[in-house]
Design a binder for these strands. Sequence first.
DNA 1: GCTCACAATGGGAACGTTCCCATCCTAGGT
DNA 2: ACCTAGGATGGGAACGTTCCCATTGTGAGC
Lengths: 347, 347
Amino acid sequence: MSVRASRHATLLEVAREADASKTSVSRYFGGERERLSPALRQRIGEAARRLGYRPNQIARGLKGGRSRLLGMLVADIRNPYSIAVMHGVEQACREHGYSLLVANTDNDPAQERTHLALLASYRVEGLVVNVAGSPTRELQDMADQGLPLVLLDRWLAEVEADVVGLDNPLAIDMAVDHLRRQGYRNLLFLSEPLGQASPRQQRWQRFEQRLADEPTLYGERRAPPLGGEAVEDVVRDFLARTGRSAALLCANGNVTLAATRALQALGVPLGEVGLLGIDELDWCGLVPPGISTLAQPTEAIGRAAVQHLLARLDDATQPPRRTLYPARLNARGSTRLEGLNDNKEWQ
Amino acid sequence: MSVRASRHATLLEVAREADASKTSVSRYFGGERERLSPALRQRIGEAARRLGYRPNQIARGLKGGRSRLLGMLVADIRNPYSIAVMHGVEQACREHGYSLLVANTDNDPAQERTHLALLASYRVEGLVVNVAGSPTRELQDMADQGLPLVLLDRWLAEVEADVVGLDNPLAIDMAVDHLRRQGYRNLLFLSEPLGQASPRQQRWQRFEQRLADEPTLYGERRAPPLGGEAVEDVVRDFLARTGRSAALLCANGNVTLAATRALQALGVPLGEVGLLGIDELDWCGLVPPGISTLAQPTEAIGRAAVQHLLARLDDATQPPRRTLYPARLNARGSTRLEGLNDNKEWQ
DNA sequence: GCTCACAATGGGAACGTTCCCATCCTAGGT
DNA sequence: ACCTAGGATGGGAACGTTCCCATTGTGAGC
């Protein structure tokens, strides 16, 4: 009985201790216990416990190529949407015996490339990607090498991979319908600058399309920079020209935040000017009279991403799938034109 | 020239392609380029580029024990505080050539144990731990095995490890000072149930202590469950008994959220009853007239955690350090007794 | 009683690195 | 010219697994 060295016990040590072969011990921990006789099984179990043995995942990953690691590349880790999805991804990983290696790019395309390479070097078995730029080349290479890939929310037309996210056209339809039903007639669609982000583009386009089909509605689209006074200016201008029954439709959480600030700065009461945001945020219920939102089923989206990965790990040949979820409407005071209006929408 | 197999190029293949030995290639990628002659260096560089070679971190980790992985165990990944700190940790990791393996326990002690074991099995070189329960035994074992450990925010008295977090007594002092200066005289300290969480206990104790030193102030402490009506009841009761110049001091972000809801439900205007929260949140500036907070320097805390890890990796013998940061006061409308009061505090 | 299938077990070669230790060569000191 | 120090390079073992392929033992079928 020696002083416990400050190192980890190995498979071989357990084998010796249990008077078994390393193969048997490997089987014990590799989920093939039923192949072992009860006696041997017990000896190994005890020896392992005595030695505090834990299989070394690194070594495991090396031999079998099974790193049991899934990677997630996040464009902006501070975005509540990303977090919520990540939570779903992480849970699903855990349930399937995987661990999650997270890389955050802070929306920097250069970092994105670096991190992609990094994740690859850890031989992750699959990758959930929320792209910032357009690392088309890198992603296609990885896909070609047989690495299962899921594009989250944002997708790249050129990359053949599964896509999981929100049904954006439907979300815009729901938004426009809701606003119209609540009595708003002049809609301002506010987005962040479109850039490469596919959801922004989709929402932007669908809004236009939808407006064309609605003779009773008037609409405009703007994508001002979120930083300075731009949002406030745009909103002030719009309200001045359209007067009553105006509403803002915010394309994502950041915009909702900026728009809320702008309306507060302009001294316009929420509801009198409608405000509907895509993405649910903690505080939306708190700003009186409550900000209406279209919530994304983030948890489900995260889990779905992992499921796609696992399915593809199982059968690499499936054609790319696209899984889109509907948004859920949280109607609050910010889309009630007059305090005593119809209350049917409320839940 | 063969069809590129769907596998990764290996060190050996690069060596063959460059007509060099694997040792030389290993040196090239292991940061010992200066030991190679310029000619060889160039050959290897070109061969590697041609083959798209990337060192396999898994294999690296196996031989040298250098997994280049740092682990982070988070009690609640959806908590904005955790996220913010994680962002700092992740950045610091990246800057030092490490990757981050994140595990979320959802505040479940059982999961916590599991995940701790999991992280260990990936042979992370250091661990940032934001404990949920009291995995004292596991942590001490890991520390004994020579694994650098940093306790984040919450600490366990029994575990010998570095601690990084907020200077809680100082934060309470700042809070009490600010509230007194703003004219509040009756303070209600609201916390989540204390449990094992050291910061909650520290804040709770310091409040009592501080109140004892302030004859001009009256104070009470409560830790109601956050779920139902309890917070509202506690607040209503307190306000009924103390009347004017009452203020709530919220021990963390969750409590601030609950307290804000309660005050809104009671129809009490913010400011008339003071509200000061520990932890800055996105929406604190949005709820009129703005909620005052004590912000934690989360980014710095995250970076400090990694620095401690690296320092200990460098010299395992250092005694445990404790690094505490002061909070920063964001004074807003919720701690202005009357609209036209002194404005000195505003920034 | 002999063969054969099959269950239980073990030996050894990978996996892709790192690192210790040669080996070779050249230039400098004598 | 000879010895040697030291720079450049390479060979091989190890890291802790998994997995292919034996090797043993046991009872059923003939």
